[in-house]
Design a protein around this nucleic acid. Sequence first.
DNA 1: TTGAAAGCGGTACCAC
DNA 2: GTGGTACCGCTTTCAA
Lengths: 364, 364
Amino acid sequence: MKTTDSRHPGAQPLRPVGIKDIAKALDISTGTVDRALHAKPGINPMTRARVLRMAESLGYRPNLAARYLKSRKHLRISVHLPLEIALFWDSLRDGIRDAAAPFAPTLQVEFRSYPRLGEGDVPLFEQALREGTNGLIIAPGNPATLRSCIRKAARRDIAVICVVTDAPDTERLTAVSADPFTVGAVAGELLSRYLPAGGRLAFFTGWLGTEDHAEKLRGFEASLKSSRSAVRLGPVVEAHDDPREGYRRALKLLKANRDLKGIYVSTVNSLPVLQAAEQEGRLQNLTIVTTDLFPELVEWVRAGKVAATLYQRPLTQGRLALQALHQYLLDGTCPPPRIAVAPHVVMRSNLNLFLDRLPVDSEV
Amino acid sequence: MKTTDSRHPGAQPLRPVGIKDIAKALDISTGTVDRALHAKPGINPMTRARVLRMAESLGYRPNLAARYLKSRKHLRISVHLPLEIALFWDSLRDGIRDAAAPFAPTLQVEFRSYPRLGEGDVPLFEQALREGTNGLIIAPGNPATLRSCIRKAARRDIAVICVVTDAPDTERLTAVSADPFTVGAVAGELLSRYLPAGGRLAFFTGWLGTEDHAEKLRGFEASLKSSRSAVRLGPVVEAHDDPREGYRRALKLLKANRDLKGIYVSTVNSLPVLQAAEQEGRLQNLTIVTTDLFPELVEWVRAGKVAATLYQRPLTQGRLALQALHQYLLDGTCPPPRIAVAPHVVMRSNLNLFLDRLPVDSEV
DNA sequence: TTGAAAGCGGTACCAC
DNA sequence: GTGGTACCGCTTTCAA
């Protein structure tokens, strides 16, 4: 029966109640109300309690606009991401930018970049600490080397959020990522379902030493095992995110495994594998699942040569990371320790929905 | 090489430049600057031009906090959605609420409800027009009956956004939805891939007269036709969103079609179909794709009895609708004529990621 | 056509 | 401990 939002029991103020209303109701000054609401020193606990109770019963909601206006608490957030691979990281930056836009100029985002994942992130981190910032968004390539940085930040009350990858066992506020185990598991489930007759599958990755990549393999295997299909894991290949190595290894693998029924490329390095398969004339008999989405991959999906690609949604990851950080800096609201983004299953039939999110070569 | 955001060419103000800086630079008053910036009547075009040029060159950015604070331009948005089916619409409301929260109290959202899609939305719409509002978010069950309302709103400069369903050929600002053709097409592609050996598929829907439902069927068929698999469309069933009717029809269908290999239930009314299939002992030989996600469906997915369910992401739809409307009311930024949400493919392996988004029975 | 000044709601500082 | 009040940047009104 209720047709509008319910508020606090008795109070249904037409004009939002402010700090002055509380002051008037208790016949005290606004200064005192402010001190009470913010647990500032130098206030009688009794008074404080009365104010809090009155605020509650009146349904007081602070006017954020006014708060920012006065305090000029220009939050500064520093975002450190690699330049390579541009297509992915640029989308992530876009997601952060978009999410921050509505809060400008209260929220100031500074982007800093370093060449590749894990290369040069430490000096940037230290620079940000020196120059002063309220929060950081980083993608730790090598968590161990960042541990002491994160500790230092925590001691100075600078919040750190990880995106895409995580730095476990550190004081980072949270980590936003497409949970790699799940991503691997989805690939495994798709291939199991796609190949009800069973068969051997190859798994391509970057480095099994990387936590993220290893997790995908675990998820993939878990999925295969729990499926009713007779698919099973065949060769596991590390291509070290290098196209040439990927091509060479894929070629060798295909020649040595004539019975292969499917391939899962769990990193963005899928093109060389596809090219090798095409050159060997094996596409017809291979079901292939890849990772992420970039312009060169589009036609392979459209043609059905790639059965599905698992898109890790960088835009969404960026948005969630920024929102979590902003929220924390604003109210101190702690996000859950991990924020998992559900990967999108991109296939021929829904490909079009994703094309406009693809970063386009701007200018030139 | 750039490591930070680029700004306006020459100007790199440490302290953001405000309206006063412009006034001072031109030795005029802030009032005049304001009139110039907002193209208000009663200002010398020459002065206006000078102000605009100066604002540009100084890199003026309005302080939104201050603007809202003063103008108290409390945007009021009215959201009209059905009560049934609560699980879906409540999620949508949550998405809207969450997206609006950061802008409180500048942005005020009022929720109004009516019993079922298309039943009672017109009087609510008219009430909102009478009481005055800046924008509306609605789910038109029967577009024809709303046409004149939407026209009236447009004439009064009240923006209207459709969610989930659309009211085509009206002045609505945009429509946010999981593009039904694509949803159907994804179901078709999944079933084609899942059943490489081919076979006949049944399609369950609500009313083929509903644009949304008919589109899903078209997408489904298109996908089947363009696939290499030998699957083909069998019986098409309208169950009118009624559980009993769904059950009865499913039972009859299963008995009459022993060769059926797969089923796509394109509305949320999937439970009766599943129960019928289970009772008939046909689950083992049926690949089933359903729609949306609700508590009762979870165990069917987890057990693998439902191969996949296409989640239309009400939370996201709500967020996008609210953001588009807010943006428009703020800057006049027009959204694209249609905003399509990519449906999520929920399967056993990624089910867990979606469980915490499910509306939970609060209190009782 | 323009200038001056009063707030919007909170915060922070000074005086008591 | 508390009250009073100037001020954040912008809009708006009133007077010139």
